[in-house]
Write a protein that binds this DNA or RNA. Structure first.
Lengths: 207, 207
DNA sequence: CTGATATCTTACCCATGGGTAAGATAAATT
DNA sequence: AATTTATCTTACCCATGGGTAAGATATCAG
């Protein structure tokens, strides 16, 4: 956990890195204590400055939050595009999705997207975020549907299956600790395996 | 969605049903808007009374929240006990857990346990809740471990597998809508199947 | 070195919301 | 019917926290 208070050690004019320091610190606190329980004073204190100084870098508190969501959704967008170009069976796409998405859920801004309370957003931003989440869901569902059609996925309700998988990976941002015992890599690998192959031992062809 | 404002239509002394009306209304709002965004005024308004009247039935706002958690954890406790007595393979216990737990996550007070922000609790209550959540995790993990030992579950890291399954079922309370298209029954059934058997088509012995 | 400008601080405003004091009113009790 | 008592309301207190006004100070350009 880097400390970004050094960015404000001097009054040297360097808005870009100072803005970044504010953003990182705020995101960290939002994930730790939630957005609403993090006051602008809390953010300022961590950076060894006072509250009004923050308003040189962000118009208001929500603008910081929006930036967190923006960076997070960009990360997700990248993996979705990767997978779309990634040719293979529906099941392979689902597996790739789980693996990549699980990794994103262990990165700070990625965690923000699913961990922070969307209800803290203004109605416009909330509508946008909801649309984006629906888009992710549609994508995952289409991978599953593809799999059912090409025979790689067992027949099932794609909608429910998508919720099932999305839940497993989205929940990661609720319990994952960057300094914890489990690495993002091992989590992603086993999630991909468990969700596609199931918990039960397969009768033939052990992997 | 029942309206409980009728409970306060008359001043007849009936504290039990009035307290229940407050609790149900509050739980409903907590799930809809979150605890912190629900003011005591909001609760009172729904019941056609004024804020101070609420304090005849609950000492403070947090006492309402605690009651929500208490009722929810009781529901979970019941299913855990049922499964423990339910003899069978580890896999069968996991399957039973997923099925029952998914159902609980569609009931209002059950949803409260995993959907409401635990950070809104006082430190004592928070510690209790965290302990209880750890207990659930240990139980699920032990079912999986049992399965690995009796051969019904494929070898894997029980800790990660437990997080995977818990995530899928806990997430239900984030998207489930009581008046929605999907019934609790079909969700629970397919979740139990998908999480144990996996998304991939099984090579032999189709179910 | 000097003036201009970005940066940051002190002191404040005000809306929100949990909670309470004190009194009004209706229901139960006698 | 009178009185007690639970119930509920009006009016208020106060802590928290987002945001701003106005001024101080350090940095940079010339």
């Amino acid at each position: 956990m880097l400390s970004h208070y050094k960015a404000f050690a001097s009054r040297r004019r360097d808005p870009a890195t100072k803005r970044e320091a504010v953003l990182q610190t705020a995101a960290h606190l939002f994930l730790e204590k939630s957005y609403s329980r993090t006051s602008m004073n809390d953010v300022a204190e961590r950076l060894n400055i006072t509250k009004p100084a923050l308003y040189h870098y962000f118009r208001n508190k929500e603008e910081i939050l929006l930036e967190c969501y923006r960076l997070g959704t960009t990360l997700i967008e990248e993996i979705l595009n990767d997978i779309a170009s990634h040719c293979g069976t529906g099941l392979e796409k689902v597996e790739a999705f789980v693996y990549s998405y699980a990794n994103v859920m262990t990165v700070n801004f990625g965690r923000c997207v699913m961990r922070l309370d969307e209800g803290d957003l203004s109605s416009d931003a909330l509508a946008d975020l909801r649309n984006y989440k629906r888009k992710i869901d549609r994508r995952l569902r289409s991978f599953i549907q593809e799999g059912i059609e090409d025979g790689s996925v067992a027949p099932c309700d794609a909608k429910i299956a998508a919720f099932c998988i999305a839940g497993a990976v989205n929940w990661i941002c609720q319990w994952y600790e960057p300094e914890g015992a489990l690495s993002a890599e091992e989590i992603a690998t086993q999630f991909a395996r468990t969700l596609t192959q199931g918990l039960a031992r397969r009768p033939r062809k052990e992997s």
